[in-house]
Design a protein around this nucleic acid. Structure first.
Lengths: 114, 114
DNA sequence: TCTATATTTTGATAATTATTGAAATATAGA
DNA sequence: TCTATATTTCAATAATTATCAAAATATAGA
């Protein structure tokens, strides 16, 4: 992931409403959520939901599909993964212990004991 | 990690200069960097370095120690790890495959530690 | 077609954040 | 003490981002 895009992503989830949406969409998985559902869940005006969803979309973290009058938003898993990788390998390059809490690395066979 | 703090962290690294500093400090590890070194590396005014470092510090991502006339900044590894965990378990709860692609876990070859 | 509903777009304003330059603070060493 | 250097703080301004309300767009169904 390019630095510029990573910044956009961090900026996107660095805001109350957008982080809430991000979390709702992440946990909803394939099901996603309709824009209206998010508006109701966050209790904010539809124009604001639209505004913030667009920010997330521009960062590539979510995508939209129309369903009749409704628009469903889903998390873009590959982008989330890419962002994760950016943090892990690009920012903390060579120092995985720095950014990787133990709980996070279950399936790793260590070549050397720490 | 509390949501509010996570937002502060994402906001902190969601800015060009601050992400640059964050990366420099992360890869520098225990050595860290003097404020002046960062100013030189990023080619920005000292007052700006100070401003942005404070944002990172307020987010708990870095900390400062005085060394005579100099001030050395280092990454706060535990906070970075906590942020990582927030993304992994708090945002993508129950869907680890969503945020943690295999490619993300680095080889963990501990060459030269601190 | 017309009406109702879901959502987006637009434009104005408010709020926050970043930048700049100057002044202040802290410390080292003469 | 005084001077030089490193860094921070402050105040003003610029730039960006968020909020709000109204209007526009898209679609379903009568």
């Amino acid at each position: 992931m390019q630095t510029e895009l990573a910044i956009k992503c961090f900026q996107a989830i660095g805001q109350t409403h957008r982080l809430s949406m991000f979390r709702l969409l992440a946990t909803a998985g394939e099901t996603g959520h309709l824009a209206g559902e998010l508006a109701h869940a966050l209790d904010i005006a539809p124009s604001q939901v639209s505004f913030h969803l667009k920010e997330l979309e521009h960062a590539g973290l979510v995508f939209a599909t129309r369903e009749g009058r409704f628009i469903r938003y889903r998390i873009e898993a590959t982008q989330v993964a890419a962002l994760m990788e950016f943090l892990l390998s690009d920012c903390c390059r060579g120092r995985p212990e720095l950014c990787t809490p133990q709980a996070q690395i279950p399936p790793l066979k260590q070549t050397q004991g720490a």
